[in-house]
Simulated assay, not measured.
Amino acid sequence: MASITIRNLDDEVKTRLRIRAASNGRSMEEEARTILRAAVEERAEPRNLARAIRARFEPLGGVELELPVREPVREPPIFDGASS
């Protein structure tokens, strides 16, 4: 197995990693391995704006909107050069 050294890690990041590791019952080293493993295994899906918006607001609850009644489509104007 390979090993890496991470220099200049912010104290706040280290503290949060330590807390996250403790809450998951792991060492900081194992927590870092888990995070790195998950980050490189993620497959990039094409971004879907509608799905991203729905995921952001879904926890807040739904909204029922009253949709207006649609009217029939009008005939398009004719531009044939003849004046009425």
Rank of each mutant, 00 (worst) to 15 (best):
A2I: 04
V13F: 06
R74D: 04
G61W: 06
P72I: 04
E12V: 15
T34K: 13
L67H: 15
R74K: 13
P59D: 03
A32S: 13
L65A: 13
E64K: 13
E45D: 14
K14M: 06
L36F: 11
L9M: 15
R47I: 02
F79D: 14
P77I: 01
N8K: 14
E66T: 05
E30M: 07
A50I: 05
D10H: 06
R16C: 04
I6F: 06
N48P: 01
E41N: 05
R37L: 01
F57L: 13
V13R: 06
G25I: 15
F79W: 13
R70N: 01
I78N: 14
E64Y: 05
S23K: 12
R70I: 04
P72G: 03
E42G: 13
I53K: 07
E30D: 11
F79V: 10
V40N: 09
G61M: 07
S3W: 00
P72F: 05
K14I: 01
L17C: 05
L60E: 15
A44H: 03
V40W: 02
D11N: 11
S27E: 00
A22N: 06
R7Q: 10
P68S: 08
E66L: 02
G61N: 15
A2H: 02
A21W: 08
A52G: 02
E12G: 00
R26A: 08
R26H: 07
F57N: 13
I4S: 07
I35P: 03
R37V: 07
A50G: 09
F57C: 04
R56I: 02
G61S: 14
S23R: 15
I53Y: 05
R47H: 05
L49A: 14
P68K: 07
P46Y: 04
R33Q: 01
S3T: 00
D10R: 08
R37K: 12
E75I: 01
R70M: 10
M1Q: 06
